[in-house]
């Protein structure tokens, strides 16, 4: 094999390398984490206005307590600017490691870089940042979170089995443009490809909210009375859809099979009551996983750039046993 590299390309590449090296003096040097018994750990929560976030915070706090670490906790109240300030103040306090669910993909980059410069490793939880601006394994240790595509796929596979490969489906999407909505749709729609009798009649956004999900379902059910299944991108919308189905005089779980994602307690109760078919968990309990990653990193292990947070799957077979552990 002969490789020819033009002079111009060679110059361009080497010039680019020089610029990259000059601009980032700490290139490719992830700050190490000393092995200790007790760590001072920062957790910069993004907001606390929903059950999922509250469950996530509780899980981090419980695990820190269990392991005897000191947890520095902040709540950015839904503001990326405050979250940056929170991380910077953790750097100033000299924490050993920072767990961060970045609110948005770009604005949190300076905070991550600042921590790296101060020699504090950052582990991203449940949301990732823009990889063109900060790289896992280089600027931050790794990203751990749910695989939304897989969640959609697992729900689809369950539904295909439950209805014998034949259904007319109404899909209620999450907030337009959000990554869980995009990926849960992708996973579900792709998994249906092999089943020609699984038809999606309509797909509209319900904004991840119960009230909106109900209104959308009321309207779509009126336009498509022949629907036999509903796939909602969140349990809240699935529960709204159940209310709409009941208001239309049909029996959810019998006339129309309802499936969702999130695994919240109310959904499991609906499964036990026979109103809902199944839901794939989007696990908010990051504590054990996150601290295990921290330990592996301190042990000097080279970590993958994405570590999946395992999601459970709930249907009538296990809902009763699991409902106590749902958020």
């Amino acid at each position: 094999m002969v490789i020819t590299v033009s002079r111009r390309a060679f110059l361009a590449v080497s010039a680019g390398l020089v610029v990259a090296t000059a601009a980032r003096p700490t290139w490719a040097a992830l700050p190490p984490l000393k092995k200790k018994d007790v760590y001072k750990v920062g957790f910069a929560q993004t907001e606390s206005n929903n059950p999922w976030r509250l469950a996530q915070t509780a899980s981090m706090q419980d695990e820190a307590k269990k392991l005897g670490h000191q947890l520095v906790y902040t709540d950015a109240a839904g503001s990326a600017a405050k979250q940056v300030a929170d991380v910077n103040s953790m750097v100033a306090q000299g924490v050993d490691v920072i767990f961060l669910p970045p609110r948005e993909e770009k604005p949190l980059i300076p905070a991550i870089m600042n921590a790296k410069k101060a020699g504090i490793p950052v582990i991203l939880v449940d949301r990732d940042v823009d990889h063109s601006l900060a790289k896992p394994g280089e600027d931050y240790v790794t990203f751990t979170g749910s695989d939304f595509v897989d969640e959609g796929k697992r729900v689809a596979e369950w539904l295909i089995k439950a209805v014998g490969g034949k259904a007319k489906i109404i899909e209620i999407e999450g907030t337009v443009g959000s990554s869980p909505a995009n990926d849960r749709k992708k996973g579900f729609d792709t998994a249906l490809k092999g089943s020609p009798d699984m038809v999606i009649l309509a797909s509209q956004s319900g904004d991840f909210a119960r009230d909106k999900g109900r209104q959308v379902m009321e309207t779509l059910l009126q336009a498509h009375p022949d629907a036999t299944a509903v796939y909602a991108h969140s349990d809240e919308m699935a529960l709204g859809a159940i209310a709409a189905i009941e208001a239309a005089g049909k029996v959810p779980g019998k006339d129309i099979m309802v499936v969702g994602v999130d695994g919240e307690k109310a959904a499991l109760e609906a499964i036990i009551a026979g109103k809902m078919g199944a839901t794939c968990e989007c696990n908010p309990r990051f504590g054990p996983g996150a601290f295990a990653i921290m330990k592996r990193y301190a042990d000097g292990e080279t970590l993958p750039t994405f570590i999946k947070n395992e999601d459970r799957f709930f249907d009538a077979s296990n809902a009763k046993d699991m409902v106590a552990t749902a958020f």
Binding site: A209, R210, D211, R214
Partner: peptide, 14 residues
Amino acid sequence: IVIARNSAADSNLV
């Protein structure tokens, strides 16, 4: 009326 209809009160969204 909104919460009665939804069987749930979500102070973040109502």
